[in-house]
Design a protein around this nucleic acid. Structure first.
Lengths: 222, 222
DNA sequence: GTCAAGAATCTGTGATCTCAGAATTGGACA
DNA sequence: TGTCCAATTCTGAGATCACAGATTCTTGAC
C-alpha cells in the first residue's frame, strides 16, 4: 500500500485508524452488507471509541460506509445498479487519468510498476485474493499518482474505496483468471509512452468488471 | 438548496451541522485560506464540539477543509494548479452527467429549473453573489439528480464543495456579468431533449471559469 | 525603540460518561 | 413446538473533561 503522499495528519490516532480501515476496504477484507461497530473496532484496534468514530465519519463521507437510519453503520450491500454506477464513474476518470499520466512516468516508476506486476503474478499463482487486490491497487495508483492532480486522484480513490468490497465478492465468485493480461498491455503502453494505448488497456480492465454483471444480477451482499 | 435525497441520517445534530457548513462552502460564504475552529463553530451553532468535529471530519474527507499539520484546520488556499485540477475534474464528469440526465428530466423538473433560473436572474440583477451561487448550485444539481446515480452525484458534489470558496473569490474579482446565457442555452437543450447540446452548454459553463485563470494567476486566498 | 523570552490562552485530540433507541434473546403461553 | 412479548444488552450520539502543543500577547531587558 504505502500511501505515497503520506497524509499530513500523521502520527494521529485517527489517521492510522482510517488508514487501517481504508486498507481493509481496498483489499476487500470487509464484505458488503456487513455492519461495523465503533466499539468493536476500538476494542480490536486498541484505541478509544473516538478515533474510530472520526475515521468512520470520513469513510461515510467517502461513501465506503452508510449510516443506516440509526444505530447501525454498514458497508453498503452490493446492488447491480450501484456496481454499474461505480464502474461507469471509473470509466469516466481512470482511462483519461492514465493517458495523461503516461508522460510523467519515469524509469524509476516504471521499474516499480514492473516489480508490483511481478508480485501480482505471484499473488495470482498463490490464489491470494487479498494480496492480489492490494498489489492491483498499488499498480493502478502508481500510474495515476504520476500526475500531480490531488483532486482527481482523491476522486478515484473514493471510487476504489467503494469498489473494494464488491470486487472481493466478484473475485470470490468468478475467480481471478486471465486478470493479468491488461497489466501486460498497460506496461507495454507505458514503455512506449503510448497514451491512447494505455487508455485502452485501463478501459478494458474496467470493462472486464462490467461484463461480469451483464450475466449475473446481484441481490444480496453477505 | 433543499437536499433532494434528504440524508438518511436526518434529525442528527451532526447532519444538520454538516449541512449548514456545506451550504456555506457551496455558496462561497467561507474564504480560501480561512481557518475554522471546532469550538468557535460549536459556539456559533449552539451545539457541542462533538457534532462539529464529525462534520469537519466529513468535510476533510471531501477535501473542503484541510487538517493543516496540527492545531489548525483551514479551507485550502486558492492555487492556480488546484483551481485547474478542479475544473478539469468537473469537465470530466459534469457534461456527461448532464447529457445522460436530459432524458430523465420530466415536465415538473423542467418547470422547477425555469423557476430557479428566474431566481438566478434576480440574484444577478441585485448583485447578490451568495444568492446567485446558491441558485446556480440548485440549477446544476436539479439536472444531475435526474439521474439515479448516487455515486456520480456524490463525486460532483465533492467538486462543488471544494469549488465554492474559489468561485466566490473569482466572482468577487471579475463580477458576475454574462453568466446567464449558458443557462438559457441549457434550458433550450433540455426542452428539446438534446443531450449533446446540453453537454456543450455545461462544458462552456465550466470553460468560462477556466478562461479566468488563463489571464490571472492566483497567489493567495485571503 | 526593538527584540526576545516567558506566560497565558486557544486549539485539536483523545478518553470517559450518559442517554435513548434498536436488536436480540429469553421465557412464557397457546 | 411454535409464536409473541418483554427485558436485557448493545449500539451510536452527544456532552464533558483532560492534555499537549502551538500561537499570541505581554513584559522585561538591552
Amino acid at each position: 500500500m504505502s500511501a505515497e503522499p503520506s497524509d499530513p495528519a500523521d502520527g494521529l490516532l485517527r489517521a492510522s485508524v482510517h488508514e487501517e480501515l481504508r486498507r481493509r476496504f481496498v483489499t476487500g477484507r470487509v464484505m458488503p452488507g456487513t455492519s461495523l461497530s465503533t466499539r468493536g473496532l476500538a476494542l480490536e484496534l486498541c484505541v478509544s471509541q473516538m478515533p474510530v468514530r472520526e475515521a468512520l465519519a470520513r469513510l461515510a463521507a467517502e461513501g465506503a460506509v452508510e449510516i443506516r437510519s440509526k444505530r447501525r453503520i454498514v458497508v453498503p450491500p452490493m446492488t447491480a445498479a450501484r456496481f454499474q454506477d461505480l464502474l461507469r464513474c471509473r470509466e469516466m476518470l481512470e482511462p483519461d487519468a492514465a493517458a495523461s499520466a503516461v508522460r510523467h512516468i519515469d524509469a524509476a516508476r516504471l521499474k516499480r510498476l514492473r516489480a508490483v506486476d511481478d508480485e501480482i503474478g505471484e499473488a495470482l499463482r498463490d490464489g491470494d485474493v487479498g494480496a492480489y487486490m492490494a498489489r492491483n491497487y498499488e499498480f493502478h495508483f502508481l500510474i495515476y499518482r504520476a500526475l500531480s492532480r490531488p483532486t482527481l486522484i482523491q476522486l478515484i480513490e473514493t471510487l476504489w474505496l467503494q469498489f473494494g468490497p464488491y470486487m472481493r465478492v466478484v473475485y470470490g465468485r468468478f475467480g481471478t483468471s486471465r486478470l493479468d493480461d491488461q497489466h501486460e498491455r498497460a506496461l507495454a503502453a507505458i514503455r512506449d509512452r503510448n497514451g491512447p494505448a494505455l487508455r485502452r488497456a485501463v478501459l478494458a480492465d474496467i470493462r472486464d468488471g462490467m461484463s461480469l454483471i451483464a450475466k449475473n444480477g446481484f441481490e444480496n451482499g453477505a
